[in-house]
Design a protein around this nucleic acid. Structure first.
Length: 676
DNA sequence: AATATCCGTATTTTT
DNA sequence: TACGGATATT
């Protein structure tokens, strides 16, 4: 511990040793923030604070684990496992299961994820008959979005609609009634959505009896990535620590990338005025990147019209300029990345110390194919659709009903799996067994005669048997998933052309369930801490294996690698063309690129394909030409070494249409004139 | 009347 | 690929 303290710089040490009033640490990219937080935790424990009286709020559970294991290594103290570490949501879940009774909350509540929220809203929209007329009515995902923005931003519904969704602002009354019913239904089913977890935590803090008890639990509260918290989360902190004593927040307004989730940099900017007497510490020395890389990233963020009041500096002079590599198309880009990765490995950088970053999950599709073809192992973070795939949700819905037979959304989903049972049939069955009536709907489902179309009868029996077995309830969660899989297998085979990959997903779900203490715990943990990487899903880990990291930029937050490749640096990708309309969103995209570039320690490669192929169906070789991202204008490009994958013969630029492409373009046009 | 099936379209990021 | 809308089928 003493050694570690010696290695801290003056500002870091101030942050570690500060005691008493509120503390704001403004920590630039690569300024040793994680290290500082870990030292602070270790230091607090060294001073005699019991670990279980420290609350460490991080952005992901992974970040909390990482920080606590570093702190453990510092103190050699295993007790650090007792620190309350995790996300706001996971912490809310834990606190509410222990103390939610004060608010009339059942300790067995279920947690609705985003798609569950959307499905329940859709169910209600269907009942109320909205959206069937001529007028455009928001889809279920939009409804869930509006709801979350309203709640998280603590903004009036009408205002949110006016500002963010003007095209459906006229529907405010209908939307309001959907939200009202949605709330009633959640309560009746004792279900909490993501936003409820925070709202109930906040309410618990304000509760006359429970509030003080909750605040009493902690001597110190440390919050990481504070720039990406929302107003509700800031309110919770204020409720827990009205004077800010023992409260420390760390963040960087230049790295705020979650406004789409209602996060606001106002939290970090207004922290000192919200908590008078705040001590501010700025960490401006960058330990991560070489000077050429730092100069390039500083140049990128300098173009942001918003003020970021710090300038990062480093003593790591030397090292190559970052490169900006223009490629012909996506295949060429994938090829160039592979060659670069192998080249770096030849020169001594293992694959694990190399990452490829991109804006959206599917941006790595072509690259993944190429890596696989060349036998380069990789693990992908972010952009996973595992829990969103229909069959995985089906399996989870069965498990959830077993735990909470009043769960309407899950019944509605599971019943429609039966042959010739659609929305109407499912509603009939649900009414017959009284899903929301007093008593136990499961008993009624198992014992009553239920009318379903003839083709569904055998499958209904199968479902009953499955629920019968699950009701016994003592089997390990993995065995229960296996039981559900046995029920679903014939249904999936009937429903899908290619059931095998889906069945394999269910086997993975079974793997994930291994080791969980209970079925309920498994289902809740999965919604609050879903698998974030392909390695999470790959079964037993091969720890000694070397692999490249592929990651969305969002999931790369907090990460750092010796060599970083940023691909698809094209307008329309970064910034995403979904975000180019609104200046604030555009600035968020700029910060996103900044976050990506600042992950690099020694070498940074930015890649940009000139040409994108459109749709794989239809006429071949349809494509469009991309522009380099607007965030790398001339004055920033000067900080890069400019390279191309091709020889730039001036009259045969690969960027220009080849004769072939032109011919097939004409053919396509002609064919379009007479085919229908 | 309800369900199955086909087709076109749009597709970010995540607790 | 998944969803919504339209049409075909039971």
């Amino acid at each position: 511990m003493f050694d570690a303290m010696e290695r801290l710089n003056r500002e870091q040490r101030a942050a570690v040793e500060h005691l008493g009033g509120p503390l704001l640490v403004v920590a630039g990219a690569g300024s040793g923030k994680t290290w500082t937080l870990a030292c602070r935790v270790a230091n607090l424990v060294d001073r005699g604070i019991p670990p279980e009286r420290i609350l460490l709020l991080t952005f992901t559970r992974r970040a909390a684990r990482e920080m606590l294991s570093r702190a453990e290594r510092l103190t050699g103290d295993r007790a650090l496992g007792r620190v309350w570490g995790g996300t706001f949501h996971a912490t809310a879940n834990r606190l509410l299961r222990l103390h939610g009774g004060a608010l009339g909350l059942s300790p067995g509540f279920t947690v609705l994820d985003r798609t569950d929220t959307a499905d329940l809203m859709d169910l209600i929209r269907g009942e109320l008959g909205f959206g069937q007329g001529e007028r455009r009515f928001p889809r279920k995902d939009t409804l869930a979005d509006v709801y979350s923005r309203t709640v998280n931003g603590r903004t009036k519904l009408a205002e949110v609609l006016e500002r963010e969704y003007p095209w459906c602002a006229e529907e405010v009354e209908h939307i309001r009634s959907i939200f009202e019913r949605y709330t009633e239904r959640k309560r009746a089913q004792s279900a909490l959505d993501y936003d409820d977890l925070l709202l109930f935590w906040d309410a618990l803090c304000r509760h006359p009896a429970a509030g003080p008890a909750i605040s009493e639990l902690f001597d110190h509260i440390l919050v990481d990535e504070y720039q990406d918290t929302n107003p509700l989360q800031a309110d919770i902190l204020a409720s827990l620590r009205p004077e800010g004593d023992g409260l420390m927040v760390v963040g960087d307004d230049a790295q705020a990338i979650y406004a789409f989730r209602s996060a606001t940099v106002a939290n970090i900017l207004q922290f000192p005025s919200r908590f008078p007497g705040t001590t501010i510490v700025k960490l401006e020395r960058n330990y991560r990147s070489t000077r050429p890389i730092l100069e390039a990233t500083n140049a990128v963020i300098a173009l942001s019209p918003q003020r970021h009041e710090k300038t990062l500096w480093t003593e790591r002079s030397g090292g190559p300029l970052p490169s900006l590599l223009t490629c012909i198309d996506e295949r060429d880009q994938a090829d160039a990345v592979c060659r670069s990765i192998l080249d770096h490995r030849e020169r001594g950088t293992p694959l694990r110390e190399q990452a490829v970053l991109f804006r959206a999950g599917h941006h790595s599709d072509v690259l993944e194919v190429e890596l696989t073809r060349r036998n380069i192992p990789f693990v992908k973070y972010g952009g996973l659709k595992f829990l969103e795939s229909a069959h995985v949700k089906d399996a989870l819905a069965v498990l959830r009903i077993a735990d909470n037979p009043r769960d309407e959304v899950s019944w509605f989903r599971v019943l429609q799996l039966l042959d010739h049972v659609g929305p109407a049939g499912a509603r009939r069955v649900m009414a017959a067994i009284g899903v929301s009536a007093p008593g136990d709907p499961m008993t009624r489902f198992l014992e009553q005669a239920i009318a379903v179309p003839a083709p569904a009868r055998a499958e209904l029996e199968g479902l009953r048997e499955a629920f019968g077995d699950l009701a016994v309830g003592s089997a390990p969660p993995a065995a229960q998933v296996e039981r559900v899989r046995r029920f679903l297998e014939p249904l999936l085979r009937r429903r899908y052309d290619q059931p095998e990959p889906r069945l394999r997903d269910l086997e993975q779900l079974e793997q994930l369930a291994i080791g969980f203490e209970s079925r309920a715990r498994f289902v809740t943990d999965l919604t609050l801490d879903p698998p974030v990487s392909t390695s999470d899903l790959a079964g037993p880990p091969h720890l000694d294996e070397d692999y490249v990291i592929l990651s969305t930029i969002h999931s790369a937050k907090g990460g750092e690698w010796d060599v970083v490749h940023v691909i698809h640096a094209a307008d329309g990708m970064i910034p995403s063309d979904m975000s180019t309309g609104d200046p604030d969103q555009l600035e968020e995209e700029r910060r996103l690129l900044y976050v990506a570039l600042t992950r690099a320690r020694d070498e940074l490669h930015v890649l940009f394909p000139l040409r994108y192929h459109r749709s794989n169906r239809g006429y071949e070789d349809r494509h469009w030409y991309a522009q380099l991202t607007r965030f790398l204008p001339e004055e920033v490009r000067n900080r890069f070494s400019l390279e191309t994958t091709y020889v730039d013969a001036s009259d045969e630029r690969p960027g220009a249409p080849s004769p072939d492409a032109t011919a097939s373009g004409v053919d396509a046009l002609l064919a379009g004139l007479w085919s229908d």
